[in-house]
Amino acid sequence: MRHPLRTPVLTGAALGLLGPVALAAPALAADADSADLYVLHGVPDTTVDVYVNGERTLDDFTPGTLTGPLDLPTGTYTVAITAADAADASAPVIGPVDLSLTAGNSYTAVAHLKEDGSPTATLFTNDISSTDAGQGRLTVRHTAAAPAVDILAGGSPVLEDVTNPNEGSLDLPAGTVSAAVALAGTTAPVIGPADVPVQDGTLTVVYAWGSASAGNLQLAVQNIGGLHSAPSGVDSGQAGLVADDATSTGGVAAGAAALVALAGVAALGLRRRTARVTAGR
């Protein structure tokens, strides 16, 4: 559901978007004078409050929660993330940071760990440009306290040295791809190999978050549909623990597959498509 704001500050209506594990909400494209913003909490073991322009707007925001879209007027928003139930935003654990939103764009703000384990926040721009008929778009974002990774196909790297907080993105024909991910310079998979469906006209964004050293790497999955025209919906948002065995839930398994699906391009003979690796902004 769309949540317009009457002022440049998130209102209490945003609180109704929160869910403990999954998000499923229809959405409209941002208006010509506004932008869509999603917020992901990717810092393990830390329930927080989120302040925007000095006002508490998300209360007891739990790790793994993905909320949005919020339809916000164009402008710059000062965001501070505090410990849960803080009296105000004077002692943030992250920030304050300024998020500049441009009209007609879609963004995801992620509270996460740097590679060294310290907390930070990154604003990503979601690529909602049109895809060709029969194709979907896959974006993988590295927001975990973990070293660089390689994306593998057939045991060989096809995308190398993806670091925090960078992303890889490409368009794929709708269908199922299979791949794996390994620490940079190695070929032993740390996730996968696994399969994932690529949906026609949908942007699938997968976030790796958590900490490799703490053994709590997790995933959040965000789907934005309507890429053949204007983005028309957020099909789902999921978060789950990366599991090493077959007992993981279906949602978690799908997320793990999405994280490594970039490598499926080579496996499907799509080497003509080039993966882009860019920094979040």
Rank of each mutant, 00 (worst) to 15 (best):
A91H: 04
T102E: 14
V198D: 01
D33Q: 09
A253I: 11
G233F: 00
A86T: 05
T67G: 12
A109P: 01
G250D: 14
D171K: 06
Q218F: 00
D150W: 02
L152H: 10
T120H: 07
L268Y: 04
A243W: 05
L37D: 06
T125Q: 09
L101G: 04
S213E: 15
T47Q: 05
D85W: 07
D31M: 06
E115P: 02
I81W: 00
H142D: 07
A243E: 11
D161A: 12
P92E: 06
L159T: 13
T62M: 07
A144V: 00
L23Q: 05
A89K: 00
V52Y: 04
P20S: 11
A153Y: 01
L152D: 09
R273D: 13
P119N: 10
G154H: 09
G210Y: 03
R281M: 07
P8I: 03
I81V: 15
A83F: 10
G269M: 05
R141E: 10
G155D: 04
L101R: 02
M1H: 14
T108F: 10
T67M: 10
D171I: 03
G95M: 04
V205Q: 00
L138C: 02
T57D: 03
L17N: 08
G64C: 10
L170G: 09
P193D: 09
P193Y: 01
E160A: 11
G215S: 08
R281L: 13
L262Q: 09
A144D: 01
G192F: 04
H41L: 04
L152I: 09
L241Q: 11
G134K: 09
G185D: 05
Y38V: 00
L270E: 02
T11F: 06
A109C: 07
A83D: 14
G16A: 13
I151L: 15
V52N: 02
V21M: 09
H228G: 15
T62A: 11
T78R: 14
V50E: 06
Q135P: 03
T65Y: 04
T120W: 03
G136W: 01
A179K: 07
A180T: 08
D98S: 15
T143R: 09
T102G: 10
A258Q: 09
P231L: 11
V9G: 02
T7V: 13
T202H: 03
T139H: 01
T108Y: 06
G215Q: 09
L219P: 02
H3V: 15
R6V: 13
L138K: 03
A146C: 11
D127R: 14
H142L: 04
S129M: 06
G68M: 08
D59M: 10
V43T: 08
A188R: 13
N216E: 03
I151D: 05
L241W: 03
T131Q: 05
L227T: 00
V79Y: 01
Q135S: 14
A153P: 00
A27S: 15
L183W: 08
R273K: 09
G75L: 02
G240N: 02
T11S: 15
L40F: 14
S169R: 11
V97L: 14
A83I: 07
R56W: 12
A148E: 11
G104M: 07
D244E: 07
S118Y: 06
P231A: 13
A148Q: 08
G226W: 04
T176I: 02
T76Y: 02
D171G: 07
A243S: 15
G75A: 01
L40W: 01
A267G: 14
A261G: 15
D85R: 15
R6M: 12
L99E: 12
G215N: 07
R56K: 15
